[in-house]
């Protein structure tokens, strides 16, 4: 695997290693594994929180809260489907939403009206870790202007019209960059079989 991009230079843990570490936290309550995860994700979660809050103390508190939730929920992480980074992102995102007292309605998989996925379970299993690898690689190949839009949307929580204003481009261009980026990422994921 190529690791040419300088921005990837600090990335010393593979999705597979991260998944094994989090499984050790969930199954064995391993403090050593959790420390490695904390040292890897702590700074990332903290800068994610700081982007929205612009408040170092609040960002620090929300980071500690996120990592506490990671410790408590680790047993729910399913290594077969596991993408640790995506899993931790969703925990951090939800805590950030709570911190701003906003609501984000979600579907309920146990609701009898819920329409289950008919795709065979075998197809879904073991794809998670592969997905994480493929997404990391596909992300490296995205043009910088598409990457920039994704970063702003995911981390700054900026609306698409704000992004358009900040970048000095039309709203339609923001939307088409999002669409192009995800077309590319989906193609990368579909190529796995």
């Amino acid at each position: 695997m190529k690791r040419t991009d300088r921005q990837f230079a600090d990335q010393d843990l593979s999705p597979m290693e991260l998944s094994n570490l989090l499984t050790a936290v969930g199954q064995d309550r391993s403090i050593e594994a959790f420390e490695t995860i904390f040292r890897y994700y702590g700074p990332r979660v903290r800068s994610f929180m700081a982007m929205k809050t612009r408040d170092a103390q609040l960002a620090e508190e929300l980071m500690q809260e996120t990592m506490t939730a990671v410790w408590n929920k680790a047993v729910q992480f399913d290594p077969a489907r596991g993408n640790v980074s995506a899993w931790i992102f969703t925990i951090a995102r939800n805590l950030r939403i709570d911190a701003f007292r906003r609501k984000r309605p979600v579907f309920d998989e146990n609701d009898p009206v819920f329409v289950a996925d008919n795709a065979p379970a075998a197809d879904v299993e073991l794809e998670g870790r592969q997905d994480a690898e493929l997404l990391r690689e596909a992300m490296e190949s995205l043009p910088p202007e598409q990457l920039d839009v994704l970063k702003r949307a995911f981390f700054d929580e900026a609306s698409h019209s704000t992004i358009a204003e900040d970048m000095g481009i039309p709203l339609g261009t923001v939307k088409s960059r999002i669409r192009l980026a995800f077309d590319k990422l989906r193609t990368a994921l579909e190529g796995r079989r």
Binding site: G42, R44, S85, W87, F107, V115, L135, M139, K151, F182
Partner: peptide
Amino acid sequence: ALCPGCRRRLDAMEGAAGALFDKLIA
């Protein structure tokens, strides 16, 4: 809740956010 296809797309987007998370320079 009614559309498994869009749930898979959501998974892929959260996966992309995770990959960006790895990439975020702390």
